[in-house]
């Protein structure tokens, strides 16, 4: 078994993903625009009362972040599946665990991280109390990484299917439940003036578990999809 040193491979893989993304810069903005668009819908749907919005803000922000990540995850492997780079990746002597991890990391850098960075802006629009902002950003930082990892499992399993879009929501949203509960829980606690540390620690635990296990499931999913395709 010969293999290149793992770290250079991981960084080469990551650089390639980011280079590809930056050749289509508008697509990076899509999840953010989606985020803003849906945030706009809530005041229109439930009324502009600042107190009511402030009460719902943690839940709204977290649900929208969740849907934005899910939508972006759906197409994570699609182009690579269609142009054959995925099957070539499976034939490389490199550990598929690392390749999958780098795909997810690139995905998170392009969706989860920007969402986290712009979230305070949307939080202000939804009247979230300012003391809750650090908890919001920290919970999104940890939580969106879990969402990317878990969402990629769904993307890997459905990449070869013609009607993957709705199916991935059905497969993955149930797995998002704990992240949503603890993510919005953290923000709610902070908004009431309590410490959100316990919830953030739980999210950190979920992230470690997801990093350890999810790439194996993604790798298995990709092998199955290439095989059936």
């Amino acid at each position: 078994m010969s293999g290149a040193p793992l770290l250079p491979f991981l960084s080469a893989c990551l650089r390639r993903q980011l280079l590809l993304a930056f050749r289509r810069p508008l697509e990076i903005a899509n999840p953010l625009l989606f985020f803003l668009l849906v945030v706009m819908l809530f005041p229109l749907g439930i009324g502009p009362d600042p107190r009511q919005l402030a009460e719902f803000a943690p839940g709204i922000l977290w649900i929208v972040a969740l849907l934005a990540t899910l939508l972006a995850a759906e197409s994570l492997f699609r182009v690579d599946f269609e142009d054959g780079t995925l099957e070539q990746l499976l034939l490389t002597p490199q550990p598929l665990y690392l390749s999958c991890l780098s795909y997810v990391l690139a995905h998170w850098l392009l969706t989860g991280l920007p969402l986290t960075l712009v979230a305070p802006l949307f939080a202000v629009m939804l009247q979230l109390p300012p003391p809750a902002l650090p908890a919001l950003m920290l919970s999104l930082l940890l939580g969106t990484a879990v969402l990317s990892l878990v969402g990629s499992i769904g993307a890997a399993l459905t990449v070869g299917l013609k009607r993957g879009g709705l199916l991935i929501s059905l497969l993955i949203i149930p797995f998002y439940v704990p992240v949503l509960i603890f993510g919005s829980g953290a923000v709610q606690f902070a908004a009431l003036g309590n410490s959100a540390q316990p919830q953030l620690l739980v999210l950190g635990g979920m992230l470690s578990l997801a990093i350890a296990l999810a790439p194996f499931a993604i790798a298995a999913g990709l092998r199955i999809s290439v095989d059936a395709g």
Binding site: R16, L19, L20, R23, R24, E82, D83, G84, T85, E87, Q88
Partner: peptide, 8 residues
């Protein structure tokens, strides 16, 4: 399938 990236 070519295995090439059109954007590279």
């Amino acid at each position: 399938k070519s295995g090439l990236k059109g954007l590279l």
